[in-house]
Write a protein that binds this DNA or RNA. Structure first.
Lengths: 160, 160
DNA sequence: TATTGTTATACTCTATAACTATA
DNA sequence: TATAGTTATAGAGTATAACAATA
């Protein structure tokens, strides 16, 4: 069903493009929304010289001091090799440290430094403000519904 | 706040990781859910030798015969240069054609071939079934709420 | 001048295999 | 033998500048 009278689009979009099939294509809708979130988040994190991945790693380490890299990779849903460079970067900036685990000398216990904690405080506040702005038009019940649905989708992951 | 008694996690996860801060980090939750959707979609599209991007392009072209590449890039939320290789790929496989537009010889009118239409039919059906499976645990009202919320987020895009 | 499609290029994120040092 | 972290590498996806042809 094509829109013949485009009802004042919020942002520039191809008014004549039919999305009859796409409208219910959840992957497509999620991607478009996630693009906006990601793009906007990148802008918010830029002053802190953080990207979504480094921010996520920092937050998880601050909230879970002593966690291992493999646990962090799992929590971030990325492969271990890809985590290494992220941790390298955070360590080089002296935001976190890799402490040896005495009981298992293969592993590292990740901990935030004081500088890491300070950056965490500022960045978390900025991101919270950013997301509040992004979700401005959506009521709390709907947000709860969305988060629950996202969690359900996560758990619906097929055979790993 | 750390969970001391992990409540039977559906899939393998680091039980001891606190997500107090992350739980309300919408970008993170969206990313994890989108990862699952994307990963699962890739598996569904593989038999058709399509990826999410080529599938999306094909669907939009079938639904909007004659559309221009710049319109398609806009609809897909990607840059024009990145669309070129996707169109090349679909054209090489003879699923679509680039027709010259007589009134504007700079532009191409994109159209699906018969083979493209046939692949479209099969792929759309497979994706619909796939998404139905993925959204199985979520009621229709919630799905509508989620789609509306995703649309709101899309439109909340900051200064382009 | 501006726009359509294009080329070239670089950067980020992701995925896999294979290595090392420990367990 | 298995696991934690690492290296190397290749593949996607994305973003920007600059160009030719056309408007």
């Amino acid at each position: 069903m094509k829109k013949t009278h485009s009802p004042a689009p919020q942002h520039v979009e191809v008014a004549s493009v039919s999305d009859a099939t796409m409208r219910r294509f959840v992957g497509y809708r999620m991607k478009r929304a996630f693009n906006v979130v990601q793009e906007d988040l990148a802008r918010v994190l830029k002053p802190f010289e953080l990207r979504m991945l480094t921010y996520t790693a920092l937050v998880l380490i601050v909230d879970n001091p002593g966690m291992r890299q493999s646990q962090l990779a799992d929590a971030m849903d990325i492969e271990r090799p890809n985590l290494v460079v992220l941790i390298d970067e955070l360590e080089r900036r002296e935001l976190i440290v890799r402490d040896r685990v005495p009981t298992d000398r293969r592993a590292y216990a990740l901990k935030a430094t004081l500088a890491g904690l300070r950056l965490y405080d500022r960045a978390v506040a900025a991101v919270a403000a950013h997301e509040a702005r992004l979700l401005d038009g959506i009521d709390q019940d709907s947000i709860a519904t969305v988060l629950a649905a996202l969690k359900t989708i996560e758990n619906a992951r097929q055979g790993d």
